[in-house]
């Protein structure tokens, strides 16, 4: 037993733990470090974004910026502020289309606008407006319902570049046919040409359509209530969020809406996993239009 009495020298093996059995892929580890780096260095928090699509976006960004790996992209992003707008754009809500899912806008026209018409002044929040396709959609819808002059639209996004584009109201002409078809399918009163003109390779919407629109930077991840709204449109934004963040944002919407106010989400979105969504009553489930609590008497 004498040999055992001597203090044992620590061996390398004692410090080197076996790698865990289902250890994550390098790409997944690098993705987490990228998220942490953006948060520490730039204050943008993407930790509550669902990982499957976030990974695709970040991988695409790595390729677009000439980085061989997400890890290489991370070290560039934390050292180079110039790269940040590119990163923020790549991480934000993608391009939408005008009157996407036409039946939704038919439903808004038929079931929501008549109720909104009873308010002397109507506040509408377009949350995550990206390049503004839905802002102009909404403005046209309100114009044709004769309500627009009583409306204030707040169009927000956390991506300043997208906001600047939204303010321009310019879209590629290649999209025009789809938009025009959607507009008619949504029950438009004219043709889309009534509101825009084509020039070279783009279409430009009348500036009059944004006379009651305020574009502002707002980050659903971090920012709070900034207005009282009668209608919130936030379509295909929360699908990118984990359940806890989705719940937080639905709480923000609840606190923003007036009693009996309306919330319109994307056509495939599910709020079944959110506590804060319990106060929303489906008005038109297919169109994902909800109403907050019982309407005030």
């Amino acid at each position: 037993m004498a040999a055992n009495a001597r203090p044992r020298m620590p061996t390398l093996a004692a410090h080197h733990r076996e790698p865990p059995l289902n250890r994550p892929d390098p790409d997944d580890v690098e993705l987490e470090l990228f998220i942490r780096g953006l948060q520490l260095r730039h204050g943008y928090d993407f930790s509550q974004y669902a990982r499957a699509s976030l990974k695709r976006r970040v991988q695409a960004l790595a390729i677009a910026t000439g980085s061989r790996t997400i890890g290489e992209l991370t070290s560039r992003v934390v050292r180079d502020d110039v790269l940040l707008p590119t990163v923020v754009s790549a991480m934000s809500v993608p391009v939408s289309e005008m009157f996407r899912d036409p039946p939704v806008f038919r439903a808004l026209r038929a079931e929501v606008l008549p109720i909104l018409a009873s308010y002397p002044h109507i506040n509408i929040w377009q949350a995550g407006c990206a390049r503004g396709e839905e802002v102009y959609t909404l403005a046209i819808l309100l114009e044709e319902a004769g309500l627009y002059d009583r409306c204030q639209i707040f169009a927000t996004d956390f991506n300043d570049a997208a906001l600047a584009q939204a303010q321009e109201g310019i879209f590629p002409v290649t999209e025009a046919r789809q938009y025009a078809e959607n507009y008619l399918a949504a029950g438009g009163a004219h043709t889309l040409n009534h509101y825009c003109h084509a020039k070279y390779d783009h279409i430009k919407f009348d500036s009059a359509l944004r006379r009651n629109v305020t574009f502002a930077n707002h980050n659903l991840v971090a920012d709070g209530v900034f207005c009282e709204a009668h209608l919130i449109l936030c379509r295909n934004v929360l699908i990118y969020f984990t359940n806890p963040l989705q719940d937080r944002v639905l709480g923000l919407f609840r606190n923003t809406l007036v009693r009996g106010g309306f919330l319109c989400l994307g056509s495939k979105e599910s709020i079944d996993y959110s506590e804060n969504a319990r106060e929303f009553v489906a008005l038109n489930r297919r169109a994902r239009i909800y109403r907050l609590g019982a309407p005030s008497a």
Partner: peptide, 21 residues
């Protein structure tokens, strides 16, 4: 997969939909 959406699987074996490009 529904029309118009990418269908992805999350690590916790739940579905995710995306309207990315």
């Amino acid at each position: 997969a529904p029309s118009g959406y990418h269908l992805l699987i999350e690590a916790d074996e739940t579905f995710m939909l995306s309207v990315d490009a």
